[in-house]
Design a protein around this nucleic acid. Structure first.
Lengths: 198, 198
DNA sequence: CAAAATATGGAGATAATCTCCATATGTCAA
DNA sequence: TTGACATATGGAGATTATCTCCATATTTTG
């Protein structure tokens, strides 16, 4: 696998300009009203340059998303190092909702763009997934959380929260999902009639 | 509000041909490799006709989705009338996962198409939402389910399951989400230290 | 069975995406 | 420095997809 050579200085600059502009436009929710060519002008870059750096809208989204996710993952690690596992997990999940709420436009845009070839999302969110897996595993080790449900399920729930932008009661419902997930994760009192898993 | 006049016989026929073809192509996952114009040819219909019936790809998806949802909602009502509330809810949610699993391609395509102007989805899934709300409300009345989390949260979780197609462990994770939601919904023993809601 | 109403197909206008390359900018070795 | 080589740039124009329009066809109605 060939290590990608470092970009030339000007290329680096243009790339960053594109990402910065993307962030702004995403957040303002204006991305879909904009011709991709016009987006290039807006970032002060020629069409060709835009396409060389990001061959599609999705590629652009992926790059933005990757950064976003890196920030979240970093937060997760910080929490893991300072709180008891169960609490770290809870705080983190609540924090993700806060984060999304604070960047509605961005979240909407990313969710929309990633919807198709969402392998991109899967790829870009690896770091987030790892962070969540990590937090869950720690909580399981502590005995605070059941061990028969995969961390992937938590990711899926988060995905739902991110993708269901535009529900009028988004915030309330998102908090509700987190509550259900956290309560659902709590270690069941071992064997007591009522089984729930299939 | 003007009641929409009945379609002329041939119009009705064409419309159905379009929907039938859409279903097939969606399910095969080929929809995005197809020019919209070519889709028309495939359905044996002129471009103009296609556009008159469904002005956008999304409008087409919405129509398909609406039918899909109607079937699910009907199933929900059947369950509600034959099982205890809590069981009806559980069976229904598991059933939704089964249904999606059995129509992967369709689910993927719909999720993708609805991602943008997803008001369409919100509209089309009203029936599903009502059904879920109904099942949850009944279970709450029975005292089997907590009353402090909105049924909308359950919808959101379902949305996540539908939108997160293409996760390699989809099935397992989807079942996991349902398990978490169901266990999370179970009525908490009232007041006993550990509070979970925010 | 006309006449009115409604619907059809597909050629062509419109609009967005993407490619290509002459020119500019950066890098590096001597 | 500087010159030679490698890399990157912008934007005009080719390519492709979307959508409109209307002369013609089909259905309905009186």
């Amino acid at each position: 696998m060939p290590v990608d050579k470092p970009l030339r200085a000007d290329a680096q600059r243009k790339r960053e300009a594109l990402l910065a502009t993307a962030r702004e436009v995403f957040d303002a929710g204006d991305f879909f009203d904009l011709r991709f060519d016009d987006f290039a002008r807006l970032a002060g870059v020629g069409t060709g340059t835009l396409y060389r750096h990001f061959p599609t809208r999705e590629a652009l989204a992926e790059a933005v998303y990757r950064d976003e996710v890196a920030a979240l993952a970093a937060h997760a690690h910080r929490l893991r190092d300072t709180l008891p596992a169960a609490e770290a997990l809870a705080t983190f999940l609540r924090g993700v909702v806060d984060h999304i709420a604070a960047h509605q436009g961005l979240a909407r845009t990313l969710a929309t763009l990633m919807a198709d070839r969402s392998g991109a999302l899967a790829e870009g969110s690896r770091a987030l997934e790892d962070a969540v897996t990590d937090l869950v595993a720690a909580a399981v080790r502590d005995g605070a959380v059941r061990d028969d449900v995969d961390a992937g399920a938590v990711m899926m729930a988060l995905h739902g929260i991110g993708a269901a932008h535009d529900r009028p009661e988004w915030r309330t419902e998102a908090d509700g999902v987190i509550t259900l997930v956290l309560d659902g994760l709590r270690r069941r009192r071992p064997a007591r009639g009522q089984e729930s898993a299939r």
